[in-house]
Design a protein around this nucleic acid. Structure first.
Lengths: 237, 237, 237, 237
DNA sequence: AATGAATGAGTATTCATTCAT
DNA sequence: AATGAATGAATACTCATTCAT
């Protein structure tokens, strides 16, 4: 029984490429450097991947899949579930909770969601950095960051949104909310990952302290936002 | 009246490089592409610049100077002035205003400062994009973004800080404030510029609407933050 | 009865190589293309052949053997036989026939020989094309075409010539005849095979028509030449 | 006055490529070999030519132009002129001469034409070899040889034919003549050039002797053919 | 100030071949 | 007999930079 004994050459190549791309950029990284770092022959890279860009695609795709999974899980397990059992109803971009207990539960779940996703992007900060880098350039992966934004999008092809729709009919994000979410929620998240190591070096703070700061920053943000988008249902006597 | 009549070759080179670097990244841009776009001979580029990197330096330096000027002006003309004439006093990371009038005045100035700096980065969004790009890679310009962050820094070499110190003895930013400022104030600002064109294309919003959204987002943010860092001096009767 | 039931891997490789070499040249053909076309694993090719060139050798050798067989058969069964029973005598490059009947018989046989060899090279036109291709380059198979020429050669190592010598002492080709034979008999023959498919495509003629044209062209040629090299023995009354 | 002092780098590259391609084939020749042989830096080749194939195109094009010029000159200066002044008339594929003098003149001119074109292809035998090589492969230059064949073609786009038509209305080549011309006139011509050096080496004949053999071979051929396609006008008394 | 020609050092990619199984 | 993985040695092509004019 040899389980998981396949971080074989292909994985080593992906890992090496992930590190090098994030350190020196895609164009700045030479294929032979990847080969050397992965301890494989340069030609083997072309055995597993069509070309240099194929490696990048592979890296970014699996990052995106990961982010997507976490977001989908939150919507399905928390939002959708709460809507279904009546603890939450959504109208436009406002969340209306049935009672204080429901709101408290939601906040706890949301916090855990933030923690999860922060953990995930920090763990994969190298690839996040690459995705950000590539988003800033034109070309194929230009849209990586925007793909994350589209998690908020209301197109029918977005299964995250479908999942929400399945729970509440009237989900509708306004353009100001989307703008704020993108530049003040997602971009900071992504940037924290992308600049994590640099920031750590400059600030001399510990990993724990940095995660704390990240979470508390989001708490601050959420509180401010919450006032505008969250409400408790009027209590009936 | 300087005889700056024609977009001389050197300027055309800088403009072309600005556009290309921002579109394809520094490494992704070929020197001959810059030459072609600028309508000059490739060799002429080496007449005006030492090498490719010299062009990049030139672009980023003038961006930084611009940002710095605006920030310095705000600190000098508003903060420092208000401290000097007693309308404002600073203790640590808390701003204490002498009276409601002073606070109102400060807010107006701050708002104008935000508008100015948003205008400036949007006007120079190409170079901002380059600076962000280069900050994400290692290499010489890795620190561009952090140089902006250091506008908040308290090192003695920072003349912005010196300017503040000259006004108030006890300026002292806590690590949580710095963290928040960097990832939730500066990064969004820079990102708005860097991703402006992409966001505009996706959202189909007008320039005016986008600037509005940017300013109102900062207003929201400032309000939330203000509660924690701004106070009115207890009124004596 | 050899159990040659299935086009075994080795044969499939040779066939595929024959097609590809003739279409793209030896150097223009990749080993993996041969493997793909033959439906075998690339490494299997190295099980059956020492290397890429070994495949080429194999193809050309069997072509040469075939041509050689047909020529030898003609010389042995017709020329040599006729000399032995006195119907024909050879002096230098002149053929002297005993009587009209003998000449007529010879012409019939020659015609059949032409038909046979045309059939053969057309059937194997792919390999002929390769041989021509390789003859045009330097390298190992440079001499393929010339090996055919040497069928006319008078060296002692040439067993076709030996066969003729065995029949007639005084066989001797002059340099002008050899030149003409090579460039106006053999080269056209080989070229007809090599360019068969292309010519067919351009001319839109049928296979039958093309063979007819080939044979009649040789008839024209032979008639013109015959005048100079064929004679009837002076009839004794 | 520095005339013809421009066999500059570009020409040296073409010459070197011509030699190497003909010796080792297009694919068999490495770009750095061309550079070395031409005494230039490898990169300079890419300054003057788009890529390796561009060099080949350039070589073959100028060969084709040369052949075409000679053929056109013969048709214009001899055939067309004779038709215009009534010494020759053409019906289908038969040439009818007004009188013996005209025929004799034509034969002299034809002989000179053969001599010219043999000289030309021998002088450019390297490129001829390449053209033949490339004609045998698929790909871009597959048609080089056939382009020569098309000099005989009757399409309206063929200005050689136009030139003939301008002289005689009823020019019309039959398929058997075209076949014979291609495989027994053009192919031998081209092959003599392509295999010249090899044949010389094997036969040990001198350049003069070889040219003699070539010309006399064509004379033999022309005589045989002439019987079928040339006639004298019935003499009126 | 401007340019056509030239170059050294890369750079991604290919390919025939081998090896372990 | 057959194959997936692996590799060394090329190989066409690129690019920042320089030079002579």
């Amino acid at each position: 029984m040899k389980p998981e004994h396949k971080p074989e050459a292909k994985d080593r190549i992906l890992q090496a490429a992930g590190r090098l791309f994030s350190e020196k950029g895609y164009e700045g990284t030479r294929v032979y450097e990847i080969a050397d770092a992965a301890g494989v022959n340069k030609a083997l890279i072309y055995y597993y991947f069509h070309n240099k860009e194929d490696i990048l695609d592979s890296l970014i795709d699996s990052l995106m899949t990961g982010v997507y999974q976490i977001a989908l899980e939150f919507v399905d397990n928390c939002v959708r579930a709460m809507v279904q059992d009546g603890r939450l109803s959504i109208a436009g971009d406002r969340f209306l909770f049935a009672h204080g207990e429901a709101l408290k539960y939601f906040k706890r779940q949301l916090n855990r969601y933030y923690a999860d996703i922060i953990d995930y992007v920090l763990e994969n900060r190298r690839v996040v950095r690459i995705a950000m880098l590539e988003s800033l350039k034109g070309g194929k992966h230009k849209g990586s960051l925007f793909r994350i934004m589209q998690l908020l999008d209301s197109g029918p092809e977005n299964s995250l949104h479908s999942s929400l729709k399945a729970a509440a009919q009237d989900v509708n994000y306004h353009e100001d909310l989307v703008f704020f979410e993108f530049f003040f929620v997602i971009i900071p998240l992504v940037s924290m990952a992308a600049f994590y190591d640099d920031y750590k070096e400059k600030s001399l703070l510990s990993d724990e302290r940095l995660k704390e700061l990240a979470l508390s920053s989001y708490a601050t943000l959420a509180e401010g936002l919450g006032a505008r988008h969250i409400a408790l249902a009027p209590q009936e006597d």
